[in-house]
Design a protein around this nucleic acid. Sequence first.
DNA 1: ACATTCTTGGCAAGCGTTTGCCAATTGTTG
DNA 2: CAACAATTGGCAAACGCTTGCCAAGAATGT
Lengths: 343, 343
Amino acid sequence: MSTHNKAEPTDRARPATIRDVAAAAGVATSTVSRALSNPGRVNHLTRARVVEAAEALDYVPSSQARGLSSGRTHAVALLVPDITNPFYFDIIRGTQHQLKAAGYTQLLVDTEESAEMELDALRSMQRAADGVILAASRLTDEQLNAAAAIQPLVTFNRASAEAPTVVIDTPSATIQAMEHLASLGHRTVCYVSGPQNSWSDSMRWKAFQEDSQQRGLQTHRIGPYAPKTTSGAAAADAALRTGSTACIVFNDLLAIGMLQRFAARGVQVPKDISIVGCDDIFGADFCHPPLTTIASPTEQAGRVAVTMLLSQLNPALAAGTRRVAVMPTHLRVRESTGSVPQV
Amino acid sequence: MSTHNKAEPTDRARPATIRDVAAAAGVATSTVSRALSNPGRVNHLTRARVVEAAEALDYVPSSQARGLSSGRTHAVALLVPDITNPFYFDIIRGTQHQLKAAGYTQLLVDTEESAEMELDALRSMQRAADGVILAASRLTDEQLNAAAAIQPLVTFNRASAEAPTVVIDTPSATIQAMEHLASLGHRTVCYVSGPQNSWSDSMRWKAFQEDSQQRGLQTHRIGPYAPKTTSGAAAADAALRTGSTACIVFNDLLAIGMLQRFAARGVQVPKDISIVGCDDIFGADFCHPPLTTIASPTEQAGRVAVTMLLSQLNPALAAGTRRVAVMPTHLRVRESTGSVPQV
DNA sequence: ACATTCTTGGCAAGCGTTTGCCAATTGTTG
DNA sequence: CAACAATTGGCAAACGCTTGCCAAGAATGT
């Protein structure tokens, strides 16, 4: 109104900028900026005028420009090894929720179980995101630490020296499962392992091994298998060949695949063999038989990861933030486990 | 080397900028920019020098700055009503794949089945993304058209006057299912409906209604139900009360929930009642009994949606692009459907 | 030898914000 | 009433990149 615009005021194709708002409200752009993102620095009457003008013009600040000048993108990247793995659904939802609540945008990236893609994504997120949540990383410790040195990072299900991390308490879960199986009379147990470079898998195997030794159980290990239902057939056959009466399986996906194979071969679960999965994914309760599995609050884990990351970004919130969050687990007994078969 | 930097050259905390690269390569920033994103405009020798310098400095262009000046963000937003609905997994994966191949970033947003959140997201994406893929929109035609007028948009499973759209061919799928049921002798069929403002639901219901009339079948309709397994119990009970011998259910989630309820109540599927789901989601093959359902190439649908959007963004690719893509469907008969019960 | 056209690189003006700094205005104090 | 502090708004310089424009030099034609 009082200032000099150069272009015609009503060019209704291009979204309104801060300048348009400033002109409409009769103030400087700096005032608009402050009114909108730093209230208190501006007289509340002026602020009201600005807000009104912004609304009238349907003004949406450009996150790009904001990011450029402020140095922060208000975006957080979530890297998962496989978007279609139901295990990550709850994580995705958990992070999404918490992120949105904090005014952040989520950048979802599927790294396809590949360390290389992970590195790539990390690289490009260096500028595109304020921080990264790295789920089930396939990276080496070295790579991980290097990444953590460059940008704010939180790992999930992957402990690292440098980065804060949230882990599902797999070892104690495995022990719970062993306890359960032992109490059912099983003496020969098989561990069906997942991806080779999975940290979770190695943790789980370690716990399995130690615990079975303590209990004096005979053990087998088969794998590695890709964590998909389609790998279940091979795993089922191999498990049978070991002569084990029970299996602890890397995750539910694989376990469900095994269940399907057993059904096809006429092997009865749990009469002939008991199966324990891990993750309690969608479907574990309605597969056949319903799967005994290790459950944990995954969605909450996602939220915690975000909280840890955000506190890294904003030191003001950083008070008493842990570097490691351990999510509790518990065994959810359904119908895929039963007494040891009578020989 | 030849230019005048003000700061110390080795400030290894801040990522390298185009200026650093320019200095290292002994050229102007504009040349670096062109060498990197507009090859051919630059002598290939110069270009080689630039690329080398960029690599040496581990230079990653700022997508923010790039976006600010070029006006495009190279990001595409995908809005889904419920991230945890397995139906969307394949879509997410499909779009992610295609987007990545085209050098775009995916912004995933869960709108929680709410039109309001959808509008909000749309608004903020106006600046933050080059375009939006809107899955199963809950918006009114009016709102949808308004949105499409403002920014590039592709809808999924929601036809709209303005925006290009990719739809799963639900009507013909429903007819296939009716055919299947009729051939099994069913004369009284129930449609179990999904969310009230779901376009898919209304299309499906319409086809159901018309087809059953043609066949002279007696019909019922129950619902609406939230498309989750947890709504299955109520739906199962209600379906039973209608006296129908078969149900066509809005989606697999709901159908699986019904299956669980039937099992709990001792109602046998398909002996007592037949169930047809829709979507062929993860789990439909291993629930009990395995679900007869309507399958379609969802992941491909996601890819198609991206292609349509990208051709909108880049008119160069826009040759012969359809405004509507219809994805074929087919009935996948498993074990949840069978002959009509003998009375 | 000169005029003309390409090719290539540099200059500098943005893109839409934020923010440090200053100036004007108002309020408070001795 | 002078002196000072606090509040508030504006100016202008970044932020890192793209791109229109121009000029220098090379290549071509006459």
